[in-house]
């Protein structure tokens, strides 16, 4: 198979770009949470690989891999939900609380959950 005759989806291997391992802090945090939860024995690494695989093998995965940690995060959430460790609705509600907190935080100040004007319990 020649790559030249493939369509745009099979884009060039991103050879020359050696991006840092984490493009944004949340990616590092999502990665580290996964390692920490595995260390605690909440899932096996095989279970994790399967969860991640089902996301990154999906048709929506970008050819340049830039969305890798987005898939990682979806995989982590799904695995935690399937293990009964959290519920999707709880994550949704808490994520909204963090977004409200961010909006309510003056520019330049650290974003803290306490800044949420409508805190959830």
């Amino acid at each position: 198979m020649s790559r030249r005759e493939a369509n745009d989806h099979a884009a060039d291997l991103p050879l020359s770009v050696d991006a840092p391992v984490f493009a944004e802090p949340w990616q590092a945090e999502a990665f580290a949470m996964t390692v920490a939860l595995h260390d605690k024995g909440l899932f096996s690494w095989g279970e994790w690989a399967q969860a991640l695989s089902s996301q990154v093998k999906g048709p929506g995965a970008a050819a340049d891999g830039h969305d890798y940690y987005e898939h990682w995060l979806v995989a982590l959430e799904s695995l935690l939900v399937s293990k009964g460790l959290t519920a999707r609705a709880d994550v949704d509600a808490m994520a909204e609380a963090w977004e409200r907190a961010a909006h309510a935080t003056p520019h330049g100040k650290p974003i803290l959950l306490e800044n949420d004007p409508r805190p959830i319990r």
Binding site: L73, D90, A95
Partner: peptide, 10 residues
């Protein structure tokens, strides 16, 4: 925001 939410919950 979702990562922070997970971190808070866990």
């Amino acid at each position: 925001a979702r990562v922070r939410a997970l971190e808070t919950i866990l």
